[in-house]
Nucleic acid binder design. Structure first.
Lengths: 238, 238
DNA sequence: TCTGTGTATTGATATGTATCAAATCGGACC
DNA sequence: GGTCCGATTTGATACATATCAATACACAGA
């Protein structure tokens, strides 16, 4: 789920995630040696953009609440959501001076804004920070490559199963219930993430429901009844 | 084209690419302060694997000659090529201890092998090396995201056009002829990269030929007759 | 030059997903 | 409770690409 940040802390088991320097989501300050540098928080309404393609990259963002969708567009309006960022994730971290895609809040959200200058300083002054950033990027690259496999080679049903499974695994990493999935995004956003249409996403969720693999508690709440079957479906194990 | 290395030197205009420390493809030694650390070169026959999924990541690799295809597979044999690496590119650079995909030479190739321990040392001793590595990863992530857009939202014709355009642009960056494209890989590999079948790739190359946009000098040699038309096709500009 | 073999192209048909259209759902507000 | 309105589901059909099959090409070896 492109959760580079969490991946550092929870998936790969690295002790030194970026959060060590950036705080835990409560503090509005960053540890820099013995001093602190202030950052600011920014609340976002649903559908509000955090940045647009071409905007100057002035800050990195740490998600505090909600989910941010990052996407690319074709001139005729076709959209590809490239990743969903969840609380704990960092957006940015490359060295590009301008954003190469759009970022939009999929629900009410809050982010901490860290000036790039602060990041540059941290890299030189805090040994390990650069490493953590690099690890974050590597994890994100890896997840994007998994998504390539989904988009290029999986059927619609397999894509949907893979998507649900990712949420389940994120829950597990977070210590939440791995079989109760909350979908903060609409069907349209799932479709633009999986390279499908709304209707196809809906039909395949229905199919999973009919098969008894999942149950729809509400439109945005799904409980997984058979995780191992979902896993088999997700990577085409027949 | 996932040419992270070249991107650093030629695309983003960064002065300090990883090559500054790794040499120019001739030298078999790495500058480390005033001393040198030896690396070794490894020739690869066509279809020989550089590494397999799960292998311990002992080295980073710098491509010296040929093209390496990196891919993921589904249990039933479906394959997704995730990137093609060209001379000058670096493979690796994350902090994962094991490879998460396969890497195979698509033609006879040669790589320089750099022990990860050397890389770790360089990061701490050579200011700027870590940054260059990070920049490389960021560029690779960006290119992978572009590929997501292709796989998720583009038609077969648009995918093929995009693919050819990438090669053309790489040529341009390298100072080569942007309208004479050499395809070192087979149709099957293009198909596995674009999420299509061999037949569909072939049909769409034929379509581009029939339209007069390209000319097939041989099966693996294509000359572009109208680059701006190819560009329009590539991103769905109608 | 002929033959064999892997690769690419072309053709006919099947199929999965998109598209177009309608019905249903579910929450906000009166 | 009733109405409205966007979101989702369901249905009928179209279409792009996959699949299956045959042919053409290119190059290596006899």
């Amino acid at each position: 789920m492109s959760n580079a940040q969490l991946a550092i802390n929870n998936e790969t088991g690295h002790a030194a995630g970026v959060n060590e320097w950036l705080g835990d989501g409560q503090s509005a300050q960053i540890k820099m040696g013995s001093s602190f540098t202030t950052t600011h928080e920014r609340p976002l309404d649903m559908h509000e953009h955090l940045f647009m393609i071409g905007d100057k990259q002035t800050h990195l963002y740490q998600i505090l609440e909600g989910v941010i969708g990052v996407y690319k567009m074709l001139p005729d309006g076709r959209r590809q959501i490239v990743t969903f960022y969840y609380p704990g994730d960092m957006i940015g971290g490359g060295d590009k001076s301008n954003w190469t895609q759009h970022a939009e809040a999929l629900c009410n959200a809050k982010v901490r804004c860290i000036p790039v200058s602060t990041v540059d300083t941290l890299i030189t002054t805090e040994p390990g920070f650069g490493q953590a950033l690099m690890s974050m990027l590597a994890t994100e690259l890896e997840e994007t490559r998994d998504q390539l496999l989904s988009l290029g080679r999986k059927s619609a049903l397999e894509k949907v199963a893979t998507f649900l499974l990712r949420i389940s695994r994120r829950n597990k990493r977070e210590g939440a219930d791995e079989s109760l999935l909350h979908l903060p995004m609409k069907r349209a956003e799932i479709a633009d993430y999986l390279g499908l249409t709304i209707e196809t996403v809906s039909r395949n969720i229905t199919k999973l429901k009919t098969t008894g693999i999942i149950r729809l508690e509400s439109k945005s709440e799904i409980s997984v009844k058979d995780i191992s079957l979902l896993e088999e479906l997700a990577d085409g194990g027949n």
